[in-house]
Amino acid sequence: MAWIFFIPTDIPYQKTKKEDPLDILKKRFAEGFITKEEYEESKKILKSDN
Results as ranks from 00 to 15, higher is better:
residue 26 K to I: 11
residue 7 I to K: 09
residue 28 R to F: 00
residue 14 Q to F: 15
residue 13 Y to R: 09
residue 37 E to N: 09
residue 15 K to C: 10
residue 8 P to F: 01
residue 44 K to G: 12
residue 26 K to V: 06
residue 29 F to E: 03
residue 22 L to M: 05
residue 7 I to W: 10
residue 24 I to L: 05
residue 43 K to M: 11
residue 28 R to H: 06
residue 10 D to S: 04
residue 16 T to I: 15
residue 44 K to C: 08
residue 22 L to C: 03
residue 28 R to S: 01
residue 14 Q to V: 04
residue 3 W to E: 14
residue 35 T to M: 03
residue 43 K to S: 11
residue 7 I to C: 01
residue 38 E to V: 06
residue 28 R to Q: 04
residue 5 F to C: 07
residue 46 L to K: 04
residue 23 D to V: 00
residue 22 L to E: 08
residue 37 E to L: 15
residue 22 L to I: 03
residue 39 Y to F: 10
residue 34 I to C: 04
residue 29 F to I: 00
residue 13 Y to K: 12
residue 18 K to Q: 07
residue 7 I to M: 08
residue 31 E to K: 03
residue 19 E to T: 13
residue 16 T to R: 14
residue 41 E to T: 10
residue 2 A to E: 05
residue 24 I to P: 01
residue 26 K to R: 12
residue 35 T to Y: 02
residue 48 S to N: 04
residue 39 Y to E: 00
residue 42 S to P: 00
residue 17 K to I: 06
residue 14 Q to P: 02
residue 48 S to Y: 07
residue 11 I to W: 00
residue 15 K to I: 04
residue 18 K to M: 11
residue 19 E to D: 07
residue 2 A to L: 10
residue 21 P to N: 05
residue 45 I to P: 09
residue 39 Y to R: 00
residue 8 P to Y: 05
residue 8 P to R: 01
residue 4 I to C: 10
residue 9 T to I: 11
residue 11 I to H: 05
residue 42 S to A: 13
residue 29 F to T: 00
residue 43 K to C: 06
residue 13 Y to W: 11
residue 48 S to G: 06
residue 17 K to N: 08
residue 46 L to W: 03
residue 23 D to P: 01
residue 41 E to Q: 14
residue 39 Y to L: 00
residue 37 E to V: 13
residue 17 K to H: 09
residue 1 M to N: 01
residue 6 F to C: 14
residue 36 K to C: 12
residue 41 E to W: 10
residue 45 I to R: 15
residue 2 A to R: 04
residue 27 K to S: 09
residue 15 K to P: 04
residue 29 F to S: 02
residue 11 I to V: 07
residue 16 T to Q: 15
residue 23 D to R: 00
residue 40 E to P: 15
residue 6 F to A: 13
residue 17 K to E: 11
residue 43 K to I: 02
residue 32 G to M: 01
residue 27 K to M: 10
residue 15 K to G: 03
residue 33 F to M: 12
residue 36 K to G: 07
residue 33 F to L: 12
residue 26 K to W: 07
residue 44 K to N: 13
residue 7 I to H: 10
residue 14 Q to S: 12
residue 34 I to H: 01
residue 50 N to S: 14
residue 44 K to S: 13
residue 24 I to F: 03
residue 26 K to N: 12
residue 23 D to F: 00
residue 50 N to W: 11
residue 34 I to R: 03
residue 30 A to T: 02
residue 30 A to F: 12
residue 31 E to M: 11
residue 7 I to S: 05
residue 2 A to F: 09
residue 47 K to E: 06
residue 32 G to L: 00
residue 33 F to P: 04
residue 43 K to V: 10
residue 33 F to W: 14
residue 8 P to M: 04
residue 19 E to V: 03
residue 23 D to A: 03
residue 44 K to D: 09
residue 16 T to S: 14
residue 46 L to Q: 07
residue 10 D to K: 06
residue 50 N to F: 14
residue 48 S to V: 09
residue 45 I to N: 10
residue 24 I to R: 03
residue 49 D to N: 14
residue 39 Y to Q: 01
residue 29 F to N: 01
residue 36 K to A: 08
residue 9 T to C: 07
residue 3 W to K: 15
residue 13 Y to A: 13
residue 37 E to Y: 04
residue 45 I to Q: 15
residue 24 I to S: 03
residue 43 K to W: 08
residue 21 P to H: 02
residue 37 E to T: 07
residue 5 F to D: 05
residue 14 Q to N: 10
residue 8 P to S: 01
residue 14 Q to D: 08
residue 24 I to W: 02
residue 29 F to L: 06
residue 18 K to W: 12
residue 3 W to A: 11
residue 18 K to E: 14
